[in-house]
Design a protein around this nucleic acid. Structure first.
Lengths: 220, 220, 220, 220
DNA sequence: AATGAATGAGCGTTCATTCAT
DNA sequence: AATGAATGAACGCTCATTCAT
């Protein structure tokens, strides 16, 4: 029997967070706290199992709530995912937007975009991992969650940049894809290092996009 | 309120091949043909629903085989996925390897890699889509299926290239990530166009990596 | 293949009274008013979904009360049903009783009974429909709610009538059944017409019971 | 606490039929036998709890089958109900139809209808009870299950009879209702007696409809 | 009193998997 | 080999009911 297995360590049984039995009692838990607990648990499980394989019960198992309680907060895993997605994307999108708008030249555009994205990912790692592992699978399945809207927005800004002569006249769709691909992959690797060096990763991506490998000789 | 929904157009019903209700699926089949049929069905379903959301039943529903027959060929969806993954990676990996080995300089390395990958993706689109949509989710979950092995191999070659002075002295892990990210994303966009222009996409990726945006002014 | 479906138009959503979202249902209510509201809602839902398929939540959803409030008034849907049943039967039973007691002959007995029942049904249609649609299902399930007590009372009066020579010497149980069956079915049809003609329906039933079809030639 | 309870002896736990462990083994059970077992169990439970209150699990609990097996035979309780309804009504409807068609006069029409119905009910008591207890509740909910179609057919025949002068010129809808009401109620009482006397019940109903109470003096 | 969030049992249904044919 | 019915675990979800507020 081959050892190479697609792990999928079926259902995470609650080895869970059970947040310390010393707390006052379930009833005092505020609704807000429950909502947060569910979102947190969901982020964990989506990152671990992937959106498609995650079940609502996986999510609640990661909390200390009862099965039915989930439905006081969300109608389905889709809805938690969206909430997660929105709450998170809502935090980056404006920042990225600002960065691009205030860019004076294309160097600024590229550098600002990567740096902002990497800083965000570092600050919200849980959610970045959700996106990292699920955007591919989800792109086909979702109408326009915030994250995809963010991609479209990037592409539009690129088109505008090209039209205004700010960016060179390259294929805007390919450039968008390239930025997204590099951002996710480099970011993923960045987050696995210790210590995490956002500057370094951002510099790598920016240098690559601006001058290509030919321009990169030193330790970037 | 957003009206974006996570579609998840549950279960593809068999619009399938169901060969003729009069002979109840009894037609002469070779073992090899059955195996192929399952793999083909699986590729379709994995691409459509994502690996995580796919069930064994989804796969057999796409064939004209009976439920039990699946288990004569594979133990689980994981195993089909691996087989799919292996059979496919086995087709690209050697080609990519050859390309890199015969590269005289780093321009050749980059150009050859992208072009080969894009050509392959175009020729085996079904499977490319499986990977495209599932690698993110799977990377965490798989021990070392062929595809990941391919990534490692690329990274090793990059390290070698740097050691030999063939490639500039950049972060090899980041560069690997960047190539993978760009390859997948650009490829995805390339395949959505009509007609598909492999040359154009490969040129875009290569130019970007070699000289960066600063060097790209014309329609690449 | 038949395309007849068992509709069961699951759960009536509150198109209800929901008094004004700004004051969250806090409006001044007397205990009596709440009780009435629940009974009214229950009658509506029992008639719509049937007793068996109705849930406590269906009932409270039809009111502007909170879930827990229900239990300040009733222990279960059974109890509401009984209360409904009692309150209603309490309104007809004495009338029917009076009618029968004061009957001088069996023509009076029959005519008076049907007319009184039809008049009542017309005046309390909501509840009539509850009974109409649920007595069959309930007869087996209830110990002696008022409605069944009413049936027994009728049978007893019939027995007495026969004993006294007021009624012909027929099978009293069958006669009771026949009266009940005709009363419900004719009444149901009567209520679906526009305008509702109680006289006509009562005349039909009485004529049938008194002289049979042979005696009925004109438009009854 | 009142003793008058709406019994609803929650869920019949399998005191069941478990058809003798001596039989060869589950696998040899033919599909037909399973289908019959489900239909039989369903008839029992529908009669006991009422259609609305019955759950699919109540039905399978009455069999020795596993939960999932139900769905190899029926999609829902609606479907079992229809199958039950159809299989049963299909047995009476033609008989009733024949009886009416061959009626020479209205005495024959009435006598033949009641007798045939009562004979059928006696021969298929399980299903009669299902109908008896559920038609009221179901009439509103179903499009046209066989049973309701039977009612319509009766009404049409009555209309035809009136048009042809075979039946007196009475309200056809009321007459239909009256026949149905009497048939169900008298039949119900008939089946509770020991011994069951179909002739007697049929004579009662026929005499009532033909000549009314005035004509009924002897022990009918 | 009235509220409505929390609970966990139980529902309808689908699933992976087995195994007699 | 191939079949597909049977199984029972597990899923998504709703329910009756409780109880702190």
């Amino acid at each position: 029997m081959k050892d190479s297995k697609v792990a999928e360590p079926k259902r995470l049984e609650d080895e869970g967070v059970t947040p310390s039995a010393s707390q006052p009692g379930k009833r005092e838990r505020t609704k807000q706290a429950n909502r947060e607990a569910i979102l947190l648990a969901a982020a964990k499980v989506f990152a671990e199992l992937g959106y498609g394989a995650t079940t609502v019960r996986d999510i609640i198992r990661q909390t200390d709530l009862a099965a039915g309680t989930f439905y006081n907060y969300f109608k389905s895993k889709e809805e938690v995912f969206e909430a997660l997605s929105d709450q998170s994307a809502l935090r980056v999108r404006p920042r990225l937007r600002d960065e691009r708008v205030k860019a004076q030249n294309f160097e600024g555009f590229i550098i600002g975009s990567f740096r902002t994205f990497f800083e965000y990912a570092e600050s919200d790692r849980d959610y970045f991992n959700v996106m990292r592992r699920n955007t591919g699978a989800l792109r086909v399945r979702m109408d326009t969650p915030e994250i995809v809207a963010g991609f479209d927005e990037l592409e539009q800004d690129i088109r505008d940049g090209i039209a205004q002569g700010l960016l060179p006249d390259v294929d805007p769709s390919y450039l968008t894809g390239a930025m997204i691909g590099v951002a996710f992959e480099v970011c993923d690797r960045m987050l696995q290092r210790e210590p995490i060096d956002v500057d370094n990763a951002a510099k790598f991506a920016s240098d690559l996009f601006l001058g290509g490998l030919r321009s990169m000789t030193g330790k970037s």
